[in-house]
Amino acid sequence: MGESAVTEANSRPQAMVEDVAFGDKPQSFGRQAWKRFRSHKLAIIGIFMFFSMVLMFWIGPAISSYEFDEINIVDRAQGPSSEHWFGTDDLGRDLFVRAMRGGQFSITISVVTGLMAAALGGVLGSIAGYFSGTVDTGVTFLINCLLTINSLAILLVLGVKFQMTPLTIAGLIAILSWYRGARVVRALVMQFKEREFVLAARAAGASNLRIIKGHLLPNVAGSLLVEATLLAGTAIILESTLSFLGLGVLPPETTLGTLINEAKGSIDTNPTRVLIPGGLVTLIVLAVNFVGDGLRDALDPTHELEQ
């Protein structure tokens, strides 16, 4: 893609900055990164948002006297009240508890997907970047194929015929989206493998596995972590879109997207039923993206660009 030209032109920090910042005590990279992350306001807000939502989603159902699948036709389709904080759906199920339940799944799916996709992308990307040749050609071909396939279309095709569990949804999204992480890792590994410290390790007789594990992965881990947060954000959106189209998890189980799908018919009379789960999805993605940004800035303060 010619990305190298961009990074090359921009990789030199400004002379002025050097001039001003000399004389500070040297610190390890990890320490500095942690310090930068801590002072990154958005990242802290993101962490706070994320964990308060985790807390709310898992504790919320416990403090409510309703079950997520408890049907009560008499109280159906109500607006928010002191009895039912978020109102009830067409079957009289309590929407607060259902939103919490949906939030649990959305968060779980996003975290699991992010980790799986990043792991898959990390392994395949580093192998491709390190060995080049046939392996690289193969992985690059796979990446290109995935690029041309619309993830949502494939999820829909499968969703129509097969019943999805949260885990299968997470697995499918990971399989469809690992290539993003792989592209980043592959490019980085190709850069790093010609660097002195890797050449030195190779000259000292280190095995390929040892070089990848000991020298290359630690150097790409940060970028991969950033990529994982981005993938987690994408996963929530994809999952909720799938559920919104009615192809999510099996009822009475629910996710935030399913709640929106169930509510869109009554959007004219009771828009809050759409606004609450939609707002929650947005907040989760926002939190995850804040954390990802903080990580990126902490790990690479000179680089604001991101492909």
Partner: peptide
């Protein structure tokens, strides 16, 4: 040496500092 202020003083003349 770097940080002695030699570059900064030159840039300052031309208004090239942040």
């Amino acid at each position: 040496e770097s940080g002695s202020g030699k570059s900064v003083s030159a840039m300052a003349m031309l208004g090239l500092l942040p």
